[in-house]
Design a protein around this nucleic acid. Structure first.
Lengths: 154, 154
DNA sequence: TACATATTTAACGTGTACGTAAAATCCGAA
DNA sequence: TTCGGATTTTACGTACACGTTAAATATGTA
């Protein structure tokens, strides 16, 4: 029964998220952030815990290269599960609960697969780069090059 | 002294790369693929080993989320080093060789840092997803839910 | 209550990475 | 040599993820 926690304006909120207000409104427009029911032209306000949600959006965007629509679908399902968790035993349809959970599991599994695929690619790329780096360094420190470098130093 | 190896048209080449001819021309236009010196309206032709280059472009694009301009800079430097490797001991300026190598090393190091950063993020995301998945599965397989599920099964 | 500053909606603009269409031209097989 | 499909250049179009501007309105402070 707490009074509404400290809520901040879109400027401070966006700054806390490391984005611009435009981005926040854009996310709301695309259904990634909850659209508040505010009276005509009333200003938006945010609780600080929503920052995590924006950070998660950026995470999925930069790390997995997903579109905002992809991300929205993930968030929607996560929200459903969160709701389910709150209403734990009071939910009307038990079948619905089960199905939402199953959907969440399927989606999360798919996400994990994508993550693992990326991981594989990244590991390969990492190895390639390390090999390349070692090769360059070998060339650089090669005696024939060292002598050249000596010549280059003054 | 081999005669020019089997060269293929842009259609087959693009297909081998898993992209469209438009993409190939676009990459050439942006300096990611060598612009061939062909007479007026002569058709482009490609040797199959160039496929690797396009695959590398896609790799950096999808795994690191780099822009084509970023990728171009990397490729240009790699090309310089490759050239250097060919001319190994016949290069005019030894200082130039050293500087190109040093640039390549710096750039590769920077790439590695970016890769490692992404890797960290991915590992974190992976862990989050695994935890989430386990949580969902626990909820689903919870006895209170199992009984609900039993009710749902006809 | 006056005022400075922040926020609002609406609309158009931007950069990236291509897609698509059209008309001319090229190239290889018959 | 002729013909049909592939390729050429040119140019406009598109999807995404915001940026920018402008005019009106809201909000916090003196």
């Amino acid at each position: 029964m707490q009074e509404s926690a400290t809520r901040i304006g879109i400027g401070d909120f966006a700054h806390a998220c490391g984005v611009t207000p435009r981005t926040i409104r854009f996310y709301e427009e695309r259904g990634l952030l909850p659209s508040q029911d505010r009276k005509e032209r009333m200003n938006r306000s945010y609780s600080a815990d929503l920052v995590k949600r924006v950070e998660r959006i950026q995470q999925l965007q930069s790390l997995l290269g997903w579109s905002l629509e992809d991300i929205r679908q993930v968030l929607v399902l996560e929200d459903q599960v969160a709701t389910l968790r709150q209403q734990y035993y009071q939910t009307d349809s038990l079948q619905d609960r089960y199905h939402v959970l199953q959907e969440a599991i399927d989606l999360t599994t798919e996400q994990l697969q994508r993550v693992n695929q990326r991981m594989k690619g990244l590991v390969k790329l990492q190895k390639d780069l390390e090999d390349k780096l070692a090769f360059y360094q070998t060339l650089r420190d090669d005696k024939k090059f060292s002598s050249a470098r000596d010549g280059a130093e003054q």
